[in-house]
Nucleic acid binder design. Sequence first.
DNA 1: TATATTTACTACGACAGACGTAGTACGACA
DNA 2: TGTCGTACTACGTCTGTCGTAGTAAATATA
Lengths: 116, 116
Amino acid sequence: MTEISSDVIRGYNDTMILFLLLNTPSYGYEISKQIKTLSENKYNIKETTLYSAFTRMEKNGYVESYSQESADTGKKRTYYRITDEGKKYYAEKCEEWFLTKEVVERFIEENYNGNY
Amino acid sequence: MTEISSDVIRGYNDTMILFLLLNTPSYGYEISKQIKTLSENKYNIKETTLYSAFTRMEKNGYVESYSQESADTGKKRTYYRITDEGKKYYAEKCEEWFLTKEVVERFIEENYNGNY
DNA sequence: TATATTTACTACGACAGACGTAGTACGACA
DNA sequence: TGTCGTACTACGTCTGTCGTAGTAAATATA
């Protein structure tokens, strides 16, 4: 078990994506690569999950999209830029994370090597 | 936002329940109370979520159920007891938790008060 | 030059877990 | 008598994830 299951991350995919958009706009493929490297191959977001996250977040006003041809290839890409609403949402999720962590860890035994 | 959203906990409801069963069998109502108090009212598992978790976990062999009349009221209750498989699963989820935490926190800014 | 792989997506449908709503039933308490 | 707490079951909906598939252009490999 080296890969993280999606049910665990569920609820934080959007947060992870928004984090990567904090300083610069980006697009699907790049985000997916960044998640992979930043997590040291421990989490690999699925394409469909990623793109549906984009559309959902755009609907929610957390990101804005625009089309742009890449400087190198000249191929058209859909870039996403985080909005102020998105930053607010990101900040809330960060707060929530620490709360969640606190709670979950009351139910987690460190080094449980149970008598099974 | 004082309550934790269910999507965040998704994937750990089973773990929380199993933790409470580690030392002693228990039943739905009691488990739900214990989750509430142990989390200091920060997480309140829904009845339907809880009972469907029980049936799922029994199907998966993580718990075993038996009927028993309570000593005080004489009312019949369905108790659940953790199995060896359940303990193994619990141990795995604990390990997974620490991995998940590590990964998620690379995407989380502590005290993010973003310029929004 | 031909082919495979990488890049950059969209569409569609299935599935699992969470949850809203509702209903049952029994005991205690006011 | 009626409400509240206890202890569930049934059923259907919703959301996010993901499998599968397909498109298309650019780049790497043979």
